Computed example of a mutant assay.
Amino acid sequence: MSDCCSHPGVGKRPEELSKPSYETYNPSEVRLYGRPASREEIFKITDEQIREKITLSLNNPATNEDEIRGLVKVVKEVAIGIIDNDVLSGIFRQQIVLAIFDDELKFRQLPVSVNIPSKTFDRDGGRYIKSIGVIYGYAYEGHCYKLPKPQIMYLPEEPREIVGGDCGCDCGYVPELGYAVWQIDKLERVIALDVRSDDVKTLVLDENMPGSRSPMAYAQTMALAPQRHRD
């Protein structure tokens, strides 16, 4: 049976992705297969609505259209904290912000600081983290592997279109089922999120019962480590 039938659908076929690069051989390349995050503009309010509000608020109604367009751009940049390609304290203060809306429709956020090169920017001056994906498997040194559990990852490369042979797949993953591929060197830093949803008994009580915890947990290792007497 073909490997192309062994993976479930994860979404719509990704659009407008670039082709993967196979011109050079990189012995340390890892190809990640998964569902890329959709790319949507953060602003649900339109430019026309912002322009209308600015026009009504200006004391000088003679402001020309070019100036209004410039003001619209400034409003959007200030809102998300971008001034001269720098990141300020706007909506996003970190690479990752966990957020919910509470019962009073107030925005509760938990910024998460991550250990990535230069904290925010890569060596070329752009953002280091460029995409998000749910990763289901990977290929390394000519072999394909499946992850035991899908992982959400923040990645330093953009997703690329999967190019396969006659069946249209690569490692059994096909673009028609919503998959894309990331080509990343094994030494690049990524961020992996372990997201689980269950009741407190399962995630806290049962998880920490004797025999369930990892023997490599830091606290357990430290507790079992022999003490060294100091002179």
Rank of each mutant, 00 (worst) to 15 (best):
S197I: 08
T202W: 04
Y173I: 09
E176M: 14
K201N: 03
V195L: 09
V174T: 15
D185S: 13
P175Y: 14
Q183S: 12
K186T: 08
S197M: 07
E188W: 04
T202A: 09
P175V: 10
D198F: 02
L177A: 14
Y173C: 14
E176Q: 15
I191K: 00
V200G: 01
D194L: 12
V181F: 03
V174D: 15
A180Q: 11
R189L: 09
L177E: 13
L177Y: 14
G178C: 12
P175W: 14
I184Y: 04
A180F: 08
R196A: 07
D199E: 00
L205T: 04
T202P: 00
V195S: 01
W182N: 00
A192C: 09
V181D: 05
E188H: 09
L203T: 05
A180I: 10
Y179D: 13
K201F: 07
W182Q: 03
Y179E: 14
L193C: 05
L177I: 06
I184M: 02
A192V: 10
W182R: 05
L177P: 02
S197C: 07
L193S: 07
V190W: 01
V174I: 15
Q183W: 10
L203D: 04
A180N: 07
L205Q: 10
E176R: 15
A180L: 10
L203W: 03
G178W: 07
V200W: 00
D194T: 06
V181N: 05
K186R: 14
A180M: 11
P175D: 14
V190Y: 03
Q183R: 11
V190A: 10
L177K: 14
D198G: 06
L205W: 12
V195M: 08
D199A: 04
V190C: 08
L193V: 02
L187P: 00
Y173H: 15
V200L: 07
V200T: 03
L193H: 07
Q183M: 11
K186V: 13
K186H: 13
D199Q: 09
A192D: 02
V190E: 03
L187V: 07
A192H: 03
W182I: 08
I184G: 01
E188L: 04
V200F: 05
E188Q: 10
Q183E: 12
D198C: 00
V204S: 01
D198L: 01
I191C: 02
D199W: 04
I184N: 01
D194M: 06
D194G: 04
V200Y: 04
D199L: 04
V195E: 02
L177M: 13
Y179Q: 13
R189A: 05
V181M: 12
V181C: 06
L203M: 08
P175C: 15
E176T: 15
L177Q: 15
E176W: 11
A192M: 13
Y179W: 12
T202I: 06
